[in-house]
């Protein structure tokens, strides 16, 4: 007499695999994780599964998304505690035997469910003076050599998902630093401008005094979570720190500038005048 095996077999299509998503639900008044169980579908990313929860079980679920292609940076969240893009995290890469936690970015104020208020980043962006280009060539154009813009082009891959801002412990774990620390994305922006062949503004003192590059202790979490694989720490922040050393902490460099009568580094106050806030403050009313 044979006993039938009732356990689901590998490749057995009759047994639909189930997955559980633990999604953070709530707003500024409070929140909790809520379990949603749904069928596992091959080839899905976490955002697909969250959308199915939204369409089938929780139509009021708040989730920000746009391109579903890792290019708009809207669907940043924390999947199993790791800052990630929902649209770039395949379900098949996760342990489906355990519930998958999906929570909002923990550095920014919550709006609803998975949606956070990332306006901190836009306020910081306003503190960075735009490109101050040198005069045009005689034929009215600007010219740049490729080797001069190679470094900056890596930084232009940034999709502003703000995962690096979210994971940076300087503001994630010490919120009091928010007014004094720009975060990796914007330190990278300053580094990009400092390496720009057409730019004429010296932002090195400003990077330390106002944007707080000294707060970074280069633990490289920004680089680890970047979905564009930009070497934020090695290619942007550390080079920026070294440039700051040139103007703040290196007496030999100071002596060299003095003897060779090189221009003095631009003060932070002068740079502030070129920011949008600084310009409006200096406009006569």
């Amino acid at each position: 007499m044979s006993v039938e095996n009732t356990q689901p077999q590998v490749g057995d299509d009759t047994q639909q695999k189930q997955v559980t998503l633990k999604i953070w639900r709530g707003d500024a008044s409070g929140g909790k994780f809520v379990d949603y169980t749904l069928d596992y579908l091959d080839g899905e990313v976490v955002l697909d599964a969250v959308h199915r929860v939204q369409s089938e079980q929780a139509p009021d679920l708040g989730v920000r998304w746009n391109c579903k292609a890792g290019k708009c940076g809207s669907c940043s969240s924390e999947i199993n505690g790791k800052p990630s893009l929902m649209c770039m995290t395949r379900m098949s890469t996760l342990d489906l035997e355990e519930p998958i936690t999906v929570s909002p970015m923990r550095t920014f104020p919550i709006i609803k469910d998975l949606v956070t208020d990332v306006s901190f980043n836009f306020e910081v962006a306003k503190k960075i003076p735009a490109l101050q280009p040198k005069p045009r060539e005689k034929d009215g154009t600007y010219r740049m050599s490729q080797i001069d813009i190679d470094r900056g082009q890596e930084f232009r891959k940034c999709i502003e998902c703000f995962l690096c801002q979210n994971v940076c412990h300087v503001i994630r774990d010490h919120e009091e630093n928010k007014p004094n620390f720009a975060g990796p994305r914007f330190l990278m922006r300053i580094a990009e401008l400092e390496m720009h062949p057409l730019d004429t503004l010296d932002r090195r003192r400003y990077a330390f005094d106002v944007m707080g590059v000294g707060y970074c202790n280069i633990t490289k979490c920004c680089t680890e979570v970047c979905p564009e694989h930009i070497h934020i720490t090695d290619n942007a922040i550390i080079p920026l720190k070294e440039r700051v050393v040139d103007v703040r902490f290196d007496p030999v460099a100071w002596l060299g500038r003095t003897i060779l009568r090189r221009p003095k580094p631009t003060s932070s106050e002068e740079v502030i005048k070129l920011t949008p806030a600084g310009r409006s403050a200096n406009t006569p009313s």
Partner: peptide
């Protein structure tokens, strides 16, 4: 330390307000 927020006529931007309820469970 110089900060833009220290400018007398510049209001503190909403995004840099501290102590708002943040997303997800406690850190």
């Amino acid at each position: 330390m110089t900060t833009l927020n220290a400018e007398p006529d510049t209001p503190v931007p909403v995004g840099i307000e501290k102590n708002r309820v943040r997303g997800g469970p406690p850190r």
